[in-house]
């Protein structure tokens, strides 16, 4: 970044201000200086809470640090990741629970984000129609988004309660099931319970983003389609969907990144059960509950790498659709 400051002084605004009235060198220099001065507090804060801790996490993952005494850490190389000792493999990469948590996270992310996109688009299409009381419906749809994740997890845990929950009660009275289901305790259903809660909470987010895109669409092509008598479903897939794809891509990446680091819902709904454990839950358990900062940091580092890789791959695949903010 220091090099970029140097560059700035030299050409004195000759390069980038061709379309705008040129200003005096002094004013411009003062502005650039002020800009960095104004950025400094934010950059320092982000370095303190994000940059430096991330570097330390990487470093700690190569040590045997423990939570009770972080200072007394010895470098142990890749032992936290993978090591061959006495005829067996040890380390995060050799831990079947870790791989289970990777699989759980990926499964959770793909299923819940897909459901959110489908239902989010449906809700957005409905909110885009003109009808009385639309404002009320929109406010109601926003409620799940505003409720703290912890609270929504508790609310659903109560509704999904195996003995007294209203969901088992309803399903049984309708006759879909004949014995109560232990939604959160049973390994077969617990992941679905988690997905159900997450989908409920995040449909509003996707719906609002899609709604914003829908409201920017030109009206005339819809009128033309109606005059030509084209089926609304066909119009949706041929006209609407391609036009809202950029907004959908943004919604998907935001949701996907959120889902890959999922922690709260799973922790509250099913605590540390391995059948739903996500990568974040695994890393935190190692770090805090087992006090093994080195090992936990190794898991955190792997999680970071997986997410970074997913982001880069996604941005690369969708680089035509997403333009970086700015100009």
């Amino acid at each position: 970044m220091s090099t970029s400051i140097k560059h700035d002084d030299a050409p004195a605004g000759a390069r980038s201000f061709t379309t705008k009235p040129r200003r005096g060198t002094k004013v411009r220099r003062q502005r650039v200086k002020a800009a960095w001065l104004f950025l400094a507090p934010m950059l320092i804060a982000l370095t303190l809470v994000a940059g430096w801790p991330l570097v330390r996490t990487f470093f700690l993952s190569f040590t045997d640090a423990s939570l009770s005494d972080l200072g007394a850490a010895n470098l142990i190389g890749f032992e936290n990741y993978l090591v061959y000792e006495d005829g067996r493999w040890y380390g995060v990469l050799a831990d079947s629970v870790w791989w289970q948590s990777v699989w759980n996270t990926v499964y959770f992310s793909v299923v819940s984000v897909s459901l959110e996109v489908v239902f989010g688009v449906i809700v957005a299409l409905i909110l885009n129609a003109e009808f009385k009381g639309r404002v009320i419906v929109r406010a109601a749809v926003l409620i799940p988004w505003a409720i703290p994740t912890i609270v929504s997890a508790q609310m659903w845990a109560w509704m999904l309660n195996d003995q007294f929950g209203i969901i088992n009660h309803l399903l049984m009275s309708v006759g879909i099931i004949d014995a109560p289901i232990a939604w959160t305790a049973n390994a077969t259903y617990s992941m679905w319970a988690v997905i159900m809660v997450d989908v409920w909470k995040t449909i509003p987010f996707v719906a609002l983003l899609v709604l914003a895109a829908l409201q920017m669409l030109p009206k005339d092509c819809y009128e033309a389609a109606e005059v030509d008598g084209i089926h609304p479903l066909r119009v949706f897939f041929k006209v609407t969907l391609p036009l809202i794809t950029p907004a959908l891509m943004v919604a998907v990446i935001f949701r996907l990144l959120d889902a890959l680091r999922v922690f709260d819902v799973i922790y509250v709904l099913t605590s540390n059960s391995t059948s739903t454990m996500s990568m974040s839950v695994y890393a935190r358990q190692q770090l805090v509950e087992f006090q093994d900062v080195g090992y936990g940091s190794a898991a955190s580092t792997l999680l970071f790498l997986i997410i970074a890789l997913a982001t880069v791959a996604y941005l690369y695949a969708g680089r035509k659709q997403i333009q970086l903010g700015g100009d």
């Binding site: 996490t57 700690l60 680091r261 974040s280 890393a283 935190r284 940091s297 999680l303 997410i307």
Partner: peptide, 8 residues
């Protein structure tokens, strides 16, 4: 991911 900076 918040967990990535947890120990640091």
């Amino acid at each position: 991911p918040q967990v990535a900076v947890l120990s640091g």
